[in-house]
Design a protein around this nucleic acid. Structure first.
Lengths: 242, 242
DNA sequence: CGGTGAGTTGATACGCATCAACAGAAGTGG
DNA sequence: CCACTTCTGTTGATGCGTATCAACTCACCG
C-alpha cells in the first residue's frame, strides 16, 4: 500500500519547496507506486534504459560509475528526497549505476508520463530542469574538490556537505547523523585509497573535528569542517521534491 | 545585425537534432540578439545571476570554478553549440564562471522568457532538461577520469573527447582540429600540475598518438587514444541546439 | 570454529607536485 | 631600433602526498 503524496513523510521539511494542494494532487497521479529494496541491491545500472524513475523516500544509496578494470567512482551518496534516474528519463540511457546501501523505500514514476508532465505541468517540468542543474552544480563542486583540494580538504568538504544535508532532513541528534556506508565508499567518492581515507578520518577524530564510526557521523566542530573544506555555500538550498 | 536561426551556420550539422520550420521560427523569437566578445573576457561569473543565457556560436571558452586561494578547476571547454548559463537561468545563481578564450560570438536569450518557454513550448523545455542532464553526465565522466584514472589515461580521455566533439563540428582537417588553449587550462581541467601536463603531452607526442602544439591538436591514432583513455561512448550523440 | 568483511596501523614505493632554469615569441616603452 | 618584460612552453632535479603492501583486530555468521 503506497503512501499518498499528501502524507509524504518528508515533503514538509523546509529543505523542500512547498507545493499547493493541486500540485500535490498531481504528484499523486504521477506516482505509480512504491518500491522497497534490500540493502546492496542494484536499482539502475549503467547502459540500461529503465522504464521508471524514482525518488528516494527512505534509506541510503550510492550513485557510481565503474571502469572496465573494476575501478569505481562514486558520484554521490543518495539520501531521502533525491531523484534517481532522470538521465534515463530524458536521455534514454543511464551512464552511471545506482545501488541501495541500506534497505530503501522509493516512489516510482512512469517514464512515459514524463512527456505528459512537460506538456501539462510546466511548473513541474521546470522543477525537473532545476534538479538536473542542481546535480550538475554538485558534480562541479565535487570535481573541484577532487581535482584541486588535498585529501584532508576534500574530506572536510564531503563530510560537511553530508552532515548539512542530513541535518536538513532532520536526521541529526546531538550533532550526529546516521551514515551507513563503508570507508571504501567514501574513498571511491574522493578518489583516495582506502588506507589513506582511514588515516585521514583518524586525523579528523584526533583533532576532535568529526568522528565517523559505527555508521554514525558526529560533527564536533562544523565551522572548522567547513573552513578546512573550503565550503562555499554552507546550507543546502530548498529544492523541489518530485 | 544578428543572424536568423534559420541561417544558423551550425544548426544543420549532424551533431544537432534537426528542428521543424515552426520550431526554428520560435527560436528566432526567443533569441534576442547576438554578442561578440574579445578573447579572455568574462562572460558570466560565479555568484552572479545574469539576466541572460547564451549559446556559443563561434569561438572557444572555458567554464571554471575558483577557490579562495586562487586554485582553479576547469569544468569544461566551451565549443560552438554549447549552452551557457542554464544554471543561472533556472537556479538564479551561477556557481561557476565562464570566460572566452578566443573571441566569441554568442546568441543571447532572455532569462525572463525561460518561463514562457516552459509554458508554451514543452518540446524546447524538454530539450533544456536534456541539456542539463547531458552536462551532468559529462561531469560524471570527468569526475571518474580525475578520481580514478592516471594522468596519462585522463589526458587521453580528455583529448579524445575534445577531438570527437570538434570533428562533429566539422572543424577537422587531416586529423587535426583547432585547440587554442594553454597547457595550464588543460592542467586545471585534469587536476594536474602544469609541468606534469607538459610531460604527459610530450609522451603522447613521442609515441605518435597525438600532438597538441601551436593551437592545434593532431590525432594520429584515435583508436589508441580512446583505448588508453578508457573512453566509453566514442561519438558524441546528437544534441538539441537551443 | 573457520571464514569473510570492515576497520586499523606501520613500512615502503611511486606518481605527480614543486622548484628552478632557460628558450622563443610577442608586446612595450625609451 | 633595441632593451626589457611578460607569457607560454620545455626540461631536469628533488620532495611530498598518497598508493600499495602487509599484518593484525574485531564482529559477525554459517
Amino acid at each position: 500500500m503506497s503512501i499518498k503524496c499528501r502524507f509524504c513523510p518528508i515533503r514538509n521539511f523546509p529543505l523542500f519547496q512547498q507545493l499547493s494542494e493541486a500540485e500535490v494532487a498531481f504528484m499523486e497521479r504521477f506516482k505509480v507506486g512504491e518500491m522497497t529494496v534490500q540493502p546492496d541491491t542494484p536499482i539502475l545500472s549503467a547502459g540500461s534504459s529503465s522504464p521508471q524513475i524514482f525518488t528516494a523516500l527512505k534509506g541510503f544509496g550510492l550513485r557510481y560509475k565503474l571502469l572496465e578494470d573494476g575501478r569505481r567512482q562514486v558520484l554521490s551518496f543518495i539520501f531521502p528526497g533525491d531523484l534517481i534516474g532522470l538521465q534515463a528519463g530524458v536521455m534514454n540511457q543511464m551512464t552511471h549505476s545506482v545501488d541501495s546501501t541500506t534497505s530503501m523505500t522509493l516512489c516510482v514514476f512512469n517514464r512515459n508520463e514524463l512527456w505528459s508532465l512537460f506538456r501539462n505541468f510546466p511548473a513541474r517540468a521546470y522543477d525537473l530542469t532545476w534538479i538536473a542543474a542542481s546535480e550538475e552544480r554538485f558534480l562541479g563542486e565535487a570535481l573541484t574538490a577532487i581535482g584541486q583540494k588535498s585529501a584532508f580538504e576534500s574530506m572536510c568538504w564531503a563530510l560537511s556537505r553530508i552532515y548539512r544535508r542530513l541535518e536538513a532532513l532532520q536526521m541529526d541528534e546531538r550533532r550526529s547523523v546516521p551514515l551507513p556506508y563503508r570507508q571504501q565508499d567514501l574513498a571511491d567518492a574522493l578518489g583516495l585509497s582506502l588506507v589513506h581515507t582511514n588515516k585521514t578520518l583518524a586525523k579528523l577524530r584526533e583533532r576532535q573535528i568529526a568522528n565517523w564510526s559505527e555508521g554514525r557521523l558526529t560533527v564536533n566542530d562544523i565551522q572548522a569542517l567547513e573552513e578546512m573544506g573550503l565550503v562555499e555555500s554552507k546550507l543546502p538550498r530548498p529544492r523541489p521534491l518530485i
